[in-house]
Design a protein around this nucleic acid. Structure first.
Lengths: 165, 165
DNA sequence: AGGCATAGTGTTATATTATAACGTATCGAA
DNA sequence: TTCGATACGTTATAATATAACACTATGCCT
């Protein structure tokens, strides 16, 4: 149903974040169990870093967090990138291409692409639910077999427009 | 008119490329004149590099081309990035975020975002005309003031599906 | 024309993001 | 318990992008 309005997810909405975080982590755990995949300590660490905010984080931000909480141990980039790759392949996180950043997914497990509204004032990112049906249908009409879609809309969110006057 | 089908542009179509190239360059020249902007030698060089193919090129690919054709002179990255920035701000080229690459625009001057179909087999990129109206309307409904939209759909084009199947 | 402000260019250095390559450890199945 | 596959750790380096500052060309005003 292409025309049906969908609610923006999470970031531009108030919610019980602690609870939300636990919820998503447990969904991820369950999903990996179902798929017979290993949500190892490393992968969980990286996912948790992303869940802690609903905001996008650069790979090196995540790296820094791991190294913070890690005491002596030194974590190097490939470790983070590998975990990110796994989490993306399972639809637990997304990459925000226009920011070179990563963000936890609000509908874990749907491996299809997502759509994002990115506020350039407050830097918050909202993930919209569902697909961009119109466009996907169009690609289909052209005989193009869609793999993955990236939709990132930058602008100013309602809240920041108010504050800006 | 959201539902109206639009033709894919250029890359997946046969066309007289030499002519197309001249045409786009002349449109760019005219557009800069109208806007009282300077399409300097450097900027033109970079635009020409992108027009020479309708394919995406990395900034360093362009840099390499300039250095090829430049004889002794050594061109450094900032020169290319500055020209790219100018060309993007005037809607003469686009950035393909998911590839860290740049591509000439087929509708020069429209500073709104474009949509791309990217074939992962043949690496060709087709720019669709018009806007992704449905999605932009949706953002608007949410009170989000859109600046710029990035739409990049990866998959396999009709041609490559034939050859593979 | 001369002088000035601005925009554009050139150059060096460096930041940021991402991956290659290779060895070691761990896990789960036979 | 051994084997194959998957994940991890480490070092080095590739690829992409920008900061900072000096110099040059251009357009504009008088």
């Amino acid at each position: 149903m292409p025309g049906k309005p969908r609610p923006p997810e999470i970031a531009f909405r108030k919610h019980d974040h602690r609870r939300c975080q636990r919820q998503l982590l447990s969904e991820a755990t369950q999903l990996c169990a179902e798929r017979k995949l290993r949500l190892t300590a490393r992968r969980r660490q990286v996912l948790e870093a992303l869940l802690a905010s609903h905001q996008p984080m650069g790979a090196y931000d995540i790296l820094a967090e791991l190294n913070q909480s890690a005491g002596e141990e030194h974590v190097a980039p490939p470790i983070v990138y590998r975990a990110l790759e796994f989490l993306m392949s399972e639809g637990l996180i997304h990459r925000i291409e226009s920011r070179n950043a990563f963000i936890s997914c609000v509908q874990p497990g749907h491996r299809c692409g997502a759509q994002f509204l990115i506020c350039r004032d407050c830097e918050q990112v909202a993930e919209l639910e569902g697909n961009d049906d119109g466009l996907l249908a169009e690609a289909d009409n052209l005989g193009f077999a869609v793999d993955h879609s990236v939709v990132e809309i930058t602008g100013v969110c309602a809240e920041c427009q108010k504050h800006a006057g």
